[in-house]
Design a protein around this nucleic acid. Structure first.
Lengths: 169, 169
DNA sequence: TAAAAATAGTTACATTTGAAACTATTTCTG
DNA sequence: CAGAAATAGTTTCAAATGTAACTATTTTTA
């Protein structure tokens, strides 16, 4: 996959020359965001495939690990992963099939299901997490703590703007 | 789709309490990026659906508009959209089917195809662009010019880090 | 408390996208 | 210049994900 942002920038520059009123810096920003996301997603999946995982399965295992008492409902997982419940059902099928997660009915609320890490799933995620963390440190190595903080602030501000905007429309 | 980032942050906080060595701020940053992207993508598609478009078809029309002489090859479009050539073939099928784009063989290089806007496609994209631009201005209205510039710089720096990283691994 | 509404999970179906294989054409190279 | 390699586009197949409909439960409400 070719990720040369100049294709887009050149095009947008030509349009801006023809049509008035383009907020060019913000148009570029939105599109740049898309490019960076693609790259981030690719790099993550590349790393995780070494362990037979992908973004979804990795994060699911990590979220179950982080749960109280090693138990998590599919619905909660759906919220944490920003994935549909449909997809989490399938994800759980896969994780159970791989022997990393067990699925048991919940006794308190019989509509619910409880997902738990098996010993093998726990071992896997405890092996993978430090490796991924090390790579994330590498990824951000050129950023100062102040830049990290500022980036975080800007992303949250962008998120708020988008949410307020979505409500408005 | 529930986009409450606290589900993730709480989980990551609990893991950080249990396991040493997590670069928590950068882990949160990567995930936050994912959340913001989802929201951005949703909002865009919501806006574009009013015109019978989506991110891909909109950007394809805009890129053809921006081209020299109203002609663009599918391969170029593939680069600009960060989409596979497979997907651009399909995209072109749709755009031609909707009457917005014409597809003609290229006389210079007979392997190639030339995509051009039809009058109706040109009219559509010229109608949609100002509306989208206005909404992008709304989206970023709380950001100062300095914040826009800094955000752009940080995104490009992040992209470089990811690319260098991908090469290394 | 009985009916209505909400919630959890699953299933069936559809949409979006990419990888690999294939054809046609052009460019490179020995 | 003839064969090999590269390039452009398409087709086939597969992977990932979402919507809507459905069942089973629990919670709300009149």
């Amino acid at each position: 996959m070719n990720l040369d942002f100049t294709y887009f920038e050149n095009g947008i520059g030509r349009i801006s020359g023809q049509l008035p009123g383009m907020p060019q810096d913000r148009v570029v920003l939105n599109r740049l965001f898309f490019y960076v996301f693609k790259e981030l997603d690719d790099v993550y999946n590349q790393h995780l495939s070494e362990f037979g995982l992908n973004s979804s399965t990795f994060l699911a295992l990590a979220m179950i690990l982080s749960s109280e008492d090693n138990r998590l409902n599919p619905s909660h997982l759906s919220d944490a992963l920003i994935a549909s419940r449909t997809n989490v059902t399938r994800l759980a099928d896969d994780l159970v099939g791989s022997g990393w997660v067990s699925r048991k009915p919940c006794t308190q609320d019989r509509r619910r299901v409880e997902l738990s890490l098996t010993p093998s799933g726990r071992k896997l995620i405890l092996t993978v997490l430090p490796v991924i963390w090390q790579r994330i440190e590498q990824q951000w190595i050129d950023f100062s703590p102040a830049e990290i903080t500022e980036f975080d602030r800007l992303l949250r501000k962008m998120l708020e703007g988008l949410r307020r905007f979505r409500m408005a429309s």
